[in-house]
């Protein structure tokens, strides 16, 4: 049959490449930041990605799982994955010693439309573990500081012990070229150096110009509800509110079906969706 796509010499889209765990940084309980480096120097140099994209991580013999990239493409050579020990694959990852080999393929997904977001204000809103994919966008923007107008980060966790990248983010408090708002719901000892209260309270401290602002939101479902309400109150257009969603992205390439939401595949049409997409897709959030 003549009308099929060419298969000769084409890549195997499911082929994981070996990568080495070069650094393991403990974060909060059951969360670690893994620095991975491709074994093959060619792949290492050519591998690039957009903030918001994910990779398929293989633990040899255990299986594969989608993990969002926490590092920024502006800092090549290593890829950082912030992983929560929660399933078979991540449990196997936590058992591995430094220098072990894992499989990686990707990057997958649409990622944030960073070119479109440039020349605008950037409002990054994270709740709990939502910081993992948003950290990539944050550092991308800070490393391309001149391309963006105002950069505001709002992050809320229950207690400070649950804040991912805490020390890295606290060091941003002093930066004058961005506004870093870190809030904890409770601070019983009174030692938290930043805000206290729920994340939506942070809106009181910022001005949102709906004409020139993009919001990137990631967090638990309950947070979406309240944050979206705040953003809509400030007249932010629905297609400028970007959200990162989680589904069972098994193949990453739009074939296996597991991550379908309504008429879309999270792995190729997402994982970044606009709020407008969300309204129009059944069972989105």
């Amino acid at each position: 049959m003549s009308n099929h796509p060419s298969t000769s010499g084409a890549d195997n889209i499911y082929q994981p490449s070996l990568a080495r765990i070069v650094r393991i940084l403990p974060q909060i309980e059951d969360h670690r930041l893994f620095q991975l480096r491709f074994e093959d120097s060619g792949i290492r140099q050519s591998f690039t990605y957009r903030p918001g994209q994910f990779v398929e991580l293989s633990l040899i013999g255990t299986g594969e799982a989608p993990i969002s990239i926490s590092s920024s493409p502006t800092r090549p050579e290593v890829i950082e994955l912030c992983v929560r020990k929660i399933g078979r694959v991540t449990e196997a990852l936590f058992r591995l010693p430094l220098n072990s080999l894992v499989g990686l393929r990707g990057p997958y997904g649409n990622g944030f439309p960073v070119e479109e977001m440039e020349k605008n204000n950037l409002l990054i809103i994270a709740g709990g573990l939502g910081m993992a994919p948003l950290r990539s966008l944050l550092w991308y923007a800070l490393d391309n500081r001149s391309k963006f107008k105002e950069i505001i980060l709002m992050l809320g966790t229950k207690i400070s012990e649950e804040m991912l990248f805490k020390y890295e983010l606290l060091s941003l408090l002093d930066r004058t070229d961005m506004k870093c708002l870190l809030t904890v719901d409770k601070d019983e000892e009174g030692i938290w150096p930043a805000q206290v209260g729920v994340v939506t309270k942070l809106f009181d401290a910022v001005k949102v110009d709906p004409e020139i602002t993009y919001a990137a939101v990631c967090g638990p479902p309950i947070m979406y509800k309240f944050v979206l309400r705040k953003l809509l109150e400030r007249n932010l257009p629905k297609d400028r509110i970007l959200m990162s969603l989680e589904r069972r992205m098994k193949c990453g390439v739009g074939k296996c079906g597991h991550c379908s939401i309504g008429y879309k595949y999270t792995c190729i049409d997402g994982p970044i969706f606009t709020y407008w997409d969300a309204i129009n897709l059944p069972e989105m959030i």
Partner: peptide, 30 residues
């Protein structure tokens, strides 16, 4: 739709990555 899994040999180290038909009606699909 298909599922993908690593099937180990008895040595607990080597094996095969396999795929097999799946169904969106199965409880653990999503």
């Amino acid at each position: 739709c298909y599922d993908v899994f690593d099937q180990l040999n008895l040595d607990g180290k080597t094996g095969e990555r396999r795929r097999q038909w799946d169904s969106c009606l199965f409880k653990d699909y999503a």
